[in-house]
Amino acid sequence: MKINVCLFGPMKKYADKDKFQLELEEGATITDLLDRLKIEDRIYIVVLINGRRAYDEDEPLSDGAEVLIMAPTGGG
């Protein structure tokens, strides 16, 4: 299945592009995606799937999912 990935802030270092598409096996989870991207910090991280925050790394992804990966931050 194809996953649309968008990296923000410090997560940008894990890929050449900020926005790209990845091919993952059916049933792949957030963990599989983070493994593929070689993202080491799995604690201070926020993953949004189709605009909804995911809380569990074992959550499965679905074909065509928009996945935003960012470090928590703040601002004004």
Partner: peptide
């Protein structure tokens, strides 16, 4: 004027 939200480049979400 005062910018509301986290601005460009920071996905600002809420549930």
């Amino acid at each position: 004027f005062q910018g509301c939200g986290l601005g460009k480049g920071l996905p600002d979400y809420g549930a």
